[in-house]
Design a protein around this nucleic acid. Structure first.
Length: 533
RNA sequence: GCCCUCGUAGCUCAGCGGAUAGAGCACCGGCCUCCGGAGCCGGUGGCGCAGGUUCGAGUCCUGCCGAGGGCGCCA
């Protein structure tokens, strides 16, 4: 990798200047091309501690580097307050092309960050008391994309959905179904949504509303998620946890570790030992466990199944619950880094210019299923993956449905369609690709070609960053930028047609590398790469 | 009152502590005798406010203003 060789050269130059190199030599791609292909701030970063002037030091480094330039380096320059800028020959990008082709879609930008770490990612986990609303699609799309990124970066990933199939909400759900079936109003605090009527009508006479309703809801959830391409490895039932005695075992465990105590007829967890504001109740004075205890038991179960890292993806409305669950897991003797809770801001749905309240009980529902029916899985997924989980996402249902053609997904997929169009054109013209080793890549000298390759060269870093920051939208951004570069190339650089055969050959391989990059990016997002649109 | 997230162009959003802050939509103006115009090129227009740290701050810290969410023996 060019980055490593530049860093090594800088390290050597620093030593020659009598300065101990920092552990990390920072290299970045300047925003402006006039600043070269790669740039380093080491002179500015190390000058002060060594009693040197940044520009003087940079000048010294530049002189050393220019005296015997590293591979591909045309010249090194000092710029601004002390940047060391590397201007490279296009040959470094030909190497990138070669790397991409050698690695292929399976292996380019496949990293080993995780070293086989076993990760359980739990997401969506909406209660099995009704269909999934459209906002839930954000968790589905994000969770699945994160899993794909984790998988590509050397983690062993397990997708899990937690079903809260016991407790008061299930009782109310069952009672609501039973009431509707009997033609009565739902009980106080029950579920009044239209779907309850529909489901009640489906329910066979004599069926147990709780058991039947649970299965009905689970099926609905599974199908809605499958429609956006999300499938779980495990659907974990809270009820099964209780029946297996895990809740009692967990409580006994916490008591044995002196982390639980009795007071006022209730059982408390010492969450304050782990930074919580106050201790929390595990078992209420009426003998019923709170939500917390089964949840701790559930996480205990996940660890028992051999996972090294648990990732929970929650809506920001559960923020207040983070500290106590973390405390519960620590109380069991686990380390803080074994449980990672990712909070995401909630989705705001807008219809007819009005915010749609999302509540299963209140009734007004916009279903994920309806959204997918209206715009398709690709548009839905990419829409959810356009922005950071830290921002409150507003989805205007009228906009997304009527103007779905303007969704960035089409821009990206169109690039892929053009790639395949070129392939079809080549096939029709009887042009076949010569082996890469026999092709003269130095034919590629157009800015559009270089810009495309530069963008492709970033993918491994983008994947690493998306993994590190748990930020799939960084892949989305990259894919859009890659498509932009490709469209520019496509517009200005004909592959088939009035160009010399050697250039056609080189460009065919460039197109191939673009297809590989695009394919990887779209796959990480779970968006399809159609050959024609 | 305390805690979390956010505040960037008219709108929706990107932006690993780096150099002259970018896209899409909207608006204005260009580009098809040639691989798909769902495209390309150009223009208008912006970091909530005030301090601080730093060689350098949209990015880090503090305060203020504004938006959303959270602070139960609810789930």
């Amino acid at each position: 990798m060019i980055r490593d060789s530049l860093a090594a050269a800088l390290r050597a130059a620093l030593i020659e200047a009598g300065i101990e190199p920092p552990a990390e030599i920072h290299l970045e791609r300047p925003a402006r091309r006039v600043h070269g292909d790669w740039s380093s701030n080491v002179a500015m970063a190390t000058a002060k501690n060594n009693g040197r002037n940044p520009r003087d030091l940079a000048g010294e480094l530049v002189a050393t580097l220019n005296a015997s330039p590293p591979p591909h380096v045309a010249r090194v320059e000092i710029a601004g307050p002390g940047f060391v800028n590397f201007h490279l020959h296009g040959t470094w990008l030909y190497d990138v092309l070669g790397e991409i082709i050698d690695a292929g879609e399976d292996n380019y930008a496949r990293l080993d960050i995780g070293h086989g770490q076993r990760v359980n990612v739990e997401f969506v986990s909406a209660n099995p008391t009704g269909p999934l609303h459209a906002g839930g699609g954000r968790w589905a799309a994000f969770g699945d994309a994160l899993c794909r990124i984790l998988d590509r970066t050397g983690h062993v990933v397990h997708r899990e959905y937690y079903l809260n199939d016991r407790g008061v909400q299930m009782t109310l759900f069952a009672a609501s179904l039973a009431a509707r079936q009997a033609g009565l109003d739902v009980p106080e605090g029950g579920y009044v949504g239209e779907y309850i009527k529909e489901w009640a009508a489906e329910m066979p006479p004599g069926a147990d509303p709780a058991a039947w309703g649970y299965e009905r809801a689970k099926t609905d959830l599974r199908e809605s998620l499958a429609a956006v391409g999300v499938e779980f490895d495990t659907w974990f039932s809270e009820q099964s946890l209780a029946e297996g005695g895990a809740i009692d075992e967990t409580l006994a465990d916490l008591r044995a570790k002196k982390m639980a105590y009795d007071q006022d007829g209730a059982v408390w967890l010492r969450t304050t030992d782990f930074g919580d504001d106050k201790d929390r109740v595990l078992v209420k004075s009426d003998g019923e466990p709170t939500y917390l205890l089964p949840d701790i038991a559930y996480h205990r179960n996940k660890f028992a199944r051999g996972f090294d890292l648990l990732i929970d993806i929650w809506g920001a409305d559960h923020h207040g619950y983070v500290a106590r669950l973390q405390a519960g897991v620590l109380a069991l003797g686990h380390q803080p880094e074994e449980l990672e809770i990712i909070l995401g801001q909630l989705v705001v749905l807008v219809k007819d210019g009005q915010e749609v309240r999302l509540s299963k009980r209140a009734g007004e529902l916009v279903l994920l299923e309806d959204l997918v029916d209206a715009v398709g899985a690709d548009v839905a997924r990419l829409t959810f993956l356009l922005q950071s989980l830290d921002t409150r996402q507003t989805i205007d249902l009228d906009l997304i449905t009527t103007q779905s053609n303007e969704n960035p997904v089409f821009y990206v997929q169109y690039a892929n369609a053009r790639i395949h169009s070129i392939a079809r054109k080549a096939a029709a013209a009887g042009i076949t690709r010569a082996p890469l080793a026999e092709v003269d890549l130095s034919q590629l000298v157009h800015d559009r070609e270089f810009e495309l390759l530069r963008k492709l060269s970033e993918l491994p870093e983008v994947v690493a960053m998306a993994c590190h920051d748990r930020a799939p939208h960084k892949v989305t951004t990259w894919v859009r930028e890659l498509a932009e570069r490709f469209h520019g190339f496509y517009h200005d650089c004909y592959v088939i047609g009035d160009v010399p055969p050697e250039l056609t050959q080189a460009r065919l391989w460039l197109v191939e590398s673009a297809q590989i990059g695009l394919g990887i990016g779209l796959d990480l997002l779970g968006v399809s790469a159609p050959e024609a649109m």
